[in-house]
């Protein structure tokens, strides 16, 4: 999840009245837990101007008036989706994947021999590159008789549809994906690269808000939630980390983004240096 890559080419002068900006920030926080402070003016304007246009509102102030006037969810959902839909890439920050291949997945498979299945949660999965990266990595490890069951969750229908379809543009497969995996696990369909069914079948996708009770998702051996917590305030981060801990098996692992930590948020995880990455283990 990377909210910082939005188009920053917007006017320096805010185009939205302060009370409307506050209204949008409060609504996005209420619905998604994501904190938008005063420094995110450019992001709000870049992301929501197209939504305003599609809704027939002339500008962001008109969009706010429209949202106040109509009580239905669709427009609110579109605003939240626009603010939380994010760019991702294959094998982002390669170090966690090295740690998974070299240490974590072998360790978990030794631990879970009786069930021969590992369950993985890709939280705030966006368009699916993280989940599919892990699926390809697992395929390369060639562990006969084992299944890797990946569940990708996000609160945006749009990104989940894309993840489900497994179809990516050239610019997307150019980023972070080893060429060897591209030729092995993708088919070209004119300008689009379609991930093969042997990889697609390893992942399932579900609309889910991280702020909701995660219990219905079941338990996991591994949770990936990278570059997501940075957008939440401290109490929400603690709450989400606690919820992840509740969903991990004993000895299961959580991976966060390189700039994220459980420190001062949840003291029950064990912080482990694994290869060149940091993993958080449930005792």
């Amino acid at each position: 999840m990377n909210l910082m890559n939005a188009n920053s080419a917007v006017a320096a002068e805010p185009k939205i009245e302060p009370q409307n900006y506050r209204y949008l920030c409060e609504m996005v926080y209420r619905e998604s837990g994501i904190v938008l402070d005063e420094s995110k003016h450019y992001l709000v304007e870049a992301r929501l101007t197209p939504v305003a246009r599609d809704a027939g509102a002339g500008d962001l102030n008109a969009l706010c008036n429209l949202m106040r006037a109509i009580s239905g969810r669709p427009l609110r959902d579109k605003v939240v989706e626009a603010m939380t839909t994010n760019e991702t890439l294959f094998f982002r920050d390669i170090k966690p994947f090295d740690a998974l291949r070299q240490v974590i997945l072998p360790e978990l498979t030794a631990k879970r021999r009786p069930v021969q299945t590992l369950r993985v949660l890709s939280a705030a999965c966006s368009t699916g590159q993280e989940a599919y990266s892990l699926a390809m990595l697992w395929k390369e490890m060639k562990i006969p008789g084992w299944d890797l069951d990946i569940l990708g969750i996000d609160l945006s229908d749009e990104v989940l549809d894309k993840a489900r379809g497994g179809r990516y543009q050239q610019l997307e497969v150019n980023r972070g994906l080893p060429a060897m995996y591209l030729v092995k696990y993708f088919q070209r369909d004119e300008a689009v690269w379609q991930i093969k069914s042997e990889i697609r079948s390893m992942a399932r996708w579900r609309k889910f808000n991280l702020l909701d009770d995660l219990t219905p998702l079941g338990t996991f051996d591994l949770i990936l939630c990278r570059n997501v917590l940075i957008y939440f305030d401290q109490p929400t981060k603690s709450r989400i980390l606690g919820a992840f801990r509740g969903r991990l098996i004993s000895g299961g692992y959580l991976f966060l983004g390189a700039s994220e930590t459980t420190l001062n948020l949840d003291d029950k995880f064990l912080r482990r240096q694994v290869a060149s990455a940091i993993a958080y283990q449930k005792p």
Partner: peptide
């Protein structure tokens, strides 16, 4: 791509590319 990899290329990137895509490949 397969021909290039078999002939000794360690990686392969398609034009057009972005600066970030080049850096990501060099990281790999």
């Amino acid at each position: 791509m397969i021909k290039a990899l078999e002939a000794g290329a360690d990686e392969y990137i398609m034009k057009p590319f972005t600066r970030d895509a080049i850096v990501d490949k060099l990281r790999l």
